[in-house]
Each structure stands twice: as structure tokens, then as C-alpha cells.
Design a protein around this nucleic acid. Structure first.
Lengths: 130, 130
DNA sequence: TGCAAATAACCGTTTAAGCGGTTATTTGCA
DNA sequence: TGCAAATAACCGCTTAAACGGTTATTTGCA
């Protein structure tokens, strides 16, 4: 029962729900994808993703510099049912805004350019240092 | 998406999960039943039940002095799927302790005696007044 | 009408999350 | 080996939730 509450808690945050929604659709994404698509800071993305991993909903995989996340393929007990429910529920109310951003980011990413935030943001950050 | 997060948040507390579990099994209970079966204070029971009502998972019904709660018969959107999932998941891992307490309380209640905590506690409370 | 029971609302305190911003760590590459 | 990118861990602050305890409200009954 306690574990079940933990799973629900992991899903009680909108950012984390969006992350799950993106992963259920795409299969696998790295941190920088979430940063770009959800327009959130890297630390925020990292924190929420770790939260979902700890709850047993995601697994991570390191490939070179990047860490990729995807829905755990072997959910234990309660998690299995919740995950299958989640995919159907989210399909029914998928945020069009989110889909649009995802597509746009995918195109931009495949056009070239490695991971990371758009150039403008990067330049601003660097300039702010002293 | 926000509403969905709210529903999960309502289910992220163990006490509230136990409440849902009891209601899915019994159909309808009043506040004093939760106080007796879960061995929690009245204020705690009341607060958590209201939380579940606000989340759209329960409805309440006043009958004389008592307020009865049951799972909402007309859940909206996301709630419906979650509720049906919940009943199956909870059935799979129902806490034996909880069932035992429920049965014991039911017997005690039907034997006579109105609602409220066991006599001992009631006496103590009254005695403590001044 | 007055009293007792059941319940909801309120209050002050404590605890857990969330956040932005920064620093540390891992990794690939020149 | 040294640098830059991606990510995780850390820090201080703010906010929300949970709790026990108390008070107010509703209701039935004598």
C-alpha cells in the first residue's frame, strides 16, 4: 500500500506527468530533450527524472555524454497496471501544445546541432559569468 | 493534465488509499467508521475525506447526524479509469490487517452501540473536559 | 428549548517538495 | 592531458501539506 502511494505521488506533479506522456509516445528521450520540449531548467528536469526512476517508473541508460530515460520494461506489481492505464488516459487527453513542441524540437535536433538549449540561451548564460 | 495530477495527488497518501480501499469494498461508510477501523483521529479522517471529495473521487451524503461517503458513481474523464484500476490493484494487495479490523468493527457496531469511538475512549475524553 | 453526539472548520507547528542557481562529476574529443 | 558539454548533487529559500488539538456547526432527542 505504501509503495502504491509512492507511485501515485510520483505522478502527482504536472511536469512529471508530461515527462511520462512524452516517453510513452516516443519511447526514449535524454535530459536535454525534456529541457527543450518542456522549456524547463536542466536541474529541474534532472530532479524530476530521478524522482520517476526512484519510484520505479523509469529506467535510465547512459550513452556517451547523454543519459536516456524510458518507461521501465519490467514494472513491478502495482506499477504495471498504472502504467498501462496511464498510456490510455494520456492518449485521451494529450496536450496539443506539447505535441507541437515535441515535433518542432525533433526537427530542429535532426537538422544538426547537438543537444543543449538554443544558442541564444547558451550565449546569455556564458555572458552572465564573472 | 493538471486535473489528472490532482487525482494522483489525492491518492498519494496512504491513509487516503486505505479509505478508498475500504469504500471500494463496502460501498458506503461514515466518518466514525474510518475513525474506528483506521484508528485515526476524527479531524484527520474528516480532512482526508474532504480531500478525496474535492478531488472528485468521493461523494458525501448526510443522513441524520452522520455523513456517509462513497465512491462517486459518475466520475468525470480521467477519474473513471483510475477508479476502475484502483479497485483491481487494491484487490490484488488488500491489507489483511485492514480487513480484520473492518470485520471486527462491523461486528461491534451491529451488536448495538451507536457510532463513535469505543466506550473507553469516550469516557476518557469526557473526563478530560473542564 | 436545551443537551449530547457527529462532523467540519480553524490554528499553530512541523515536515516534505519544489525551485533557481551553483558546483561537482562523467565523458568524448582535440 | 586539458577543455567543453551533459548531467547529477548540493544549498538556501519558499510553499504546501499533514498533524494534533480546539472550536464551531448541524442534527436528533428528551
Amino acid at each position: 500500500m505504501k509503495q502504491l502511494a509512492g507511485i501515485f505521488k510520483a505522478l502527482s506533479d504536472e511536469t512529471r506527468l508530461q515527462m511520462m506522456s512524452l516517453l510513452l509516445r516516443t519511447g526514449e528521450l535524454c535530459v536535454c530533450d525534456f529541457v527543450a520540449v518542456l522549456d524547463i531548467t536542466q536541474s529541474k528536469a534532472s530532479r524530476h527524472l530521478r524522482y520517476l526512476v526512484n519510484a520505479g517508473l523509469l529506467i535510465d541508460r547512459r550513452a556517451a555524454t547523454w543519459v536516456y530515460y524510458r518507461v521501465t520494461p519490467e514494472p513491478k506489481a502495482a506499477a504495471a497496471g498504472i502504467l498501462s492505464l496511464l498510456s490510455s488516459v494520456l492518449a485521451g487527453q494529450s496536450d496539443p501544445q506539447l505535441s507541437k513542441r515535441l515535433d518542432r524540437w525533433r526537427r530542429k535536433k535532426s537538422c544538426g546541432a547537438t543537444c543543449g538549449a538554443p544558442a541564444a540561451t547558451r550565449r546569455a548564460t556564458t555572458g552572465g559569468k564573472h
